[in-house]
Design a protein around this nucleic acid. Sequence first.
DNA 1: TTGGGG
Length: 470
Amino acid sequence: MEEAAARERKRPREGDAAPSAAAAAGAGKAQYVYLPVADALKAPGARVFLFAAVSEIGAAVRSRGTDFTLTLRVADQSRPAGISVTFFADNVALLPCVKITMHGEFFVTFNKKFSSFALFEGKVSTECSPYQTSTKYYGTQYDNELLTQMRTWLAYNPPGLKDLELQLRSLKSDTTFDLVCKVLHVYENNGEWIFYVWDGTDTPAAEFQAILDAEAVESSPLHLEGVPLPREVLCTMPCVGTVLRVFTNRYIKEVFHLQKNIYWARFCNITCKQEFGIWKGILGPSSRVRLLSHEDGSVVDRMKMYDSRIANQVHRQPMASLPGASNIADVEYEAAGYTTLMESLTHEQVTHKFKTLVRVVAAYPCRASELRLLLTGSYCLRLTLEDPTARIHAYVHKDDGAKFFGGFLTAEALIKKMNKLLGIPEEDEEGTPLTRNPPWIWCCVKSYRLDKNDPWGSRRYRIFGTEIRD
DNA sequence: TTGGGG
């Protein structure tokens, strides 16, 4: 169902409140009097007629009684935030006529016995026939005019655009917000759900605790989920923009639609936090998921923003790295364009040479004593590289060590370079700093396989043609 | 009856 004007009403009955009584006067060919949504909210218990635009689309599910139920949110000029409308029907295909009653402040119910509805395209058009009607539906002579007004209002006031919205690029810990995003994948395991969501922007670069806990630096994970995405799913992920994992242990009924299709949705009242420097969304008890139309104002915004982003090579680069990436690394692969880590992970061939812009979030080894061993030329160094799209392990092969570190260094010089790579600040008079913030570096990386019988399973990354400057 | 939470 696309965004549409929805006309809902109930057949009049003797003794009803003013709006319905007015409608009753013209019994049969009634002159229904539509109330603005804001006025309907002030009339709890009354049966009302509404002419409003659908702003949120819920999923049809079996009710705890004998019916199926579906919830829409409808809005008009008097109340852009809209009102929730619950439909009941004994058959999903019907979604029919229900008595309208007010419940508290927030919502409207359709009673099957009395109500009716009609759905119209929301976009500006001369087509005034509904694309779906319930039984007991009758039009009125003024509806075409109202429909045109409603469509004009919609064109200038697309639903969505709420105060509480954050984009992935503006995520903040410890706040509750709405996220308008495309749901790319849903994973379930033992009542734990993970939604893989994307809005075309990059999550902010995390700061890490600078406490020199070698264990933590060495064991930085590549992803938050216990089981990594299978390659065939990974390959459906976009190559630019962060795919945020949103976790919950609640069953979200919209999940049925989200698992079957790729949908835009509004995740309402969610929170997020960082774990190991990776952003993680959390659906709590008060969070909700609403399916959105592709015509939703916020969705249109996100898609426009993404289209303009990917049209420009520089804007594909990590948002947090702009306006200028640190130039602490020199790369040889001058001619190559920029490639995101996700682009490489989803590359069709196992072997792939590319230039990328990343942060070194972890290194193994990173203890001074073990780093000294690198100088012997018999060890290799494993770096954990991160960009907004993914993390990978990339090895500095023992033969490439001297090149990478810019010559054969003293142990002290080596440790200094490693600290710079990891964003560990030098101690000053104020004492040990609390956070480290790895700089963005340009890096040449190539992938290869260890086992020709298991090329993808044995795929490794290796850094080449890259030198860390002083 | 059920359901809904700007």
